[in-house]
Design a protein around this nucleic acid. Structure first.
Lengths: 205, 205, 205, 205
DNA sequence: CATGAATGAGACTTCATTCAT
DNA sequence: GATGAATGAAGTCTCATTCAT
């Protein structure tokens, strides 16, 4: 009466995950559906049972990657109370993620490139923007908490946003340069240098 | 070096320049040799008289783009004496370059992605690294001049390098995020915010 | 013939009927087994329980369509006594069938094309030929009845056959041309013109 | 300085001709570009140097076939003066064309099917309609000439058109049925039967 | 030298068919 | 018996590269 039962959403996830690994390594354009099929351990046609097209697969892969990233960050700072510690934890977690696995940054760059190449296509850009706003917000919350606790010396939420945006930009930039230049400098030292500025400037005495 | 060889090199440059314009607009993978030939105003076969393969063409195009970038920066700060002004000019020039033309950052990301995907291949990575070191050096020079003039308060060359590396990382990061998020924040404000930190922290009184 | 076998045959009919509707709309090649399954309200695999292959399904669908056509014609002239009226009824019924629904002729052409492309394969051609012979026979019967009644002036059965064959050929031809030329002429007028010839030439006084 | 010189229009014709042969045999959908390439004696990619897509190739193939057909008809009656002889020549030529080569009718059916499946797409339907009007016109001209010469008894041009439309429809119909039924009747006899009607009815005593 | 016609490998995608449930 | 998930052959089309002119 009934046929093979499959959790379609799970299967989509499995395939998209396998795909994302390849995309991370070689970029979206360069990775072929054949490679994805082989990596996912399914037939070529099977992918098309779960995704209408390569673009849809890319879209979902990116979405998953972005959401995982955001979730990872949030869980890294969960359960930590002191605002300064939360800020440091956030930065340390990010550094760890990028140091542990080079592919993280390669993926990020691939994602960025895809978003920029399809800037009109909301499939690609919307998820990314939400993720950015989510991350900014997380930092802003920390800073505002610190202000409320009388730890951080900032004027208003606007300034907290400026701090958050710059921090994230710096982190992405330094990770990127670190990888591109063949790790020609000490990543930790640079990040600490930035954090010193930040805390010196805004921590109360 | 005979005239012939010079001509040959000139031709390579012309073709690679024309190619780079297309690459900047549509990415390396998406741009076909047909388009390159048309844009360069030569026959398709002619390109292969001057470049062994598309990859070699991409390599040279990237090298040219990177060198132009570096040269642009250098000429932007040439003729300016005061170290602080030179630093500000450098930043302003960078901001201008990225604000004026979105494709600059798109190209940069494409270049980064290509370099990261071919991290073993020196054709792609070497030029980039040299350019980074050149740019870092330019900043270090400014800072060290400022120190010599008694303007900047830094301990040693090592600290100047840290400042340079972080500054460049931040700039690339903020440009990238600005573009990716659909310009959801005020780029100038963020850059100025960073510069305030920098100068407040290291300028004498 | 047990009940089971009857059920089986009924199921084949249901599926083939559903299939034929799609085939009529989009042609045989263009209609996928997925669409057939959906339209028939059964699983894709189920179709293969009842038909060895798509070709067999097409074969049966065509057979059904052809038989329906023939049956329609026969029932249209059933119960009409006067030979001339029966002939007119036959033509009117045919015209109506093709005027009412363009897909009738589209289907016919698809069927013809399939038969011609598989002229060796009896699956496709046999049913068609029987249908033709059946229809010819129906016309011949009318004409011979008319001759027996002293209404039609024809020499022999051979001549009756010639009349029947030409009449059917003309009808198919004019329907086809009417559709292909975007209905650039008045179909009824043309058919009446032909019928005038026919009756004027062969009707007694 | 210059490269291989090729008459592009000639090449298009060669490929389209080779393609049409296959299309005639197996239909447009069923014939693959691989087969076309093999039959044309060129690489698969070469076809796409001359045709943007398979549809464009089909379009041109059909156009050529239709034009050849029309031209053949016209040249068959060229140089014949007497209207009755011209009419007979036209019919004989048509019969010959279809008797000599079965693929003629198979092609016609394929063409008809394609036109009907793409009834909205003017690429396919326009050429066909023009061909029909051209052929109708040719017949009408003959008949009107016959009227002017006092040979044919017809009331007006409208009647000449009716005669032309019906004649062509009958011919296509009878050719089609002849082929489909496995040549179960004598084609010539049927055509002569029709011509007798026609001439008996409209020739002056 | 310069060219562009020619090409085949390989890209994405569809779909008839099989088979485990 | 019924199902639909899985599949790979085959389809259309692109494009880097070669080579005769």
């Amino acid at each position: 009466m009934s046929a093979k039962i499959v959790d379609r959403e799970l299967r989509r996830l499995q395939i998209a995950s396998a795909a994302m690994s390849l995309f991370a390594e070689s970029g979206f354009e360069t990775t072929s559906m054949n490679q994805v099929a082989a990596a996912a351990g399914v037939g070529k046609g099977t992918i098309y049972e779960y995704f209408r097209s390569k673009d849809e697969l890319i879209g979902m892969s990116v979405r998953i990657w972005v959401e995982d990233m955001l979730e990872g960050i949030k869980s890294a700072i969960a359960g930590i109370d002191h605002p300064e510690d939360r800020l440091r934890s956030f930065v340390e977690f990010s550094v760890q993620a990028f140091i542990t696995d080079d592919s993280t940054m390669r993926t990020a760059v691939s994602v960025f490139q895809t978003v920029l190449s399809n800037i009109e296509n909301p499939t690609f850009s919307e998820g990314i923007r939400n993720a950015f706003e989510g991350t900014w917000q997380a930092i802003v919350d920390i800073v505002m908490d610190g202000k409320a606790d009388g730890l951080f010396r900032i004027r208003n939420r606007k300034e907290a946003e400026r701090i958050a945006i710059n921090l994230l930009a710096f982190l992405d930039g330094i990770f990127l340069h670190h990888l591109i230049t063949g790790k020609r400098f000490d990543l930790l030292e640079q990040v600490n240098h930035y954090m010193e500025y930040l805390l010196d400037t805004h921590m109360k005495s």
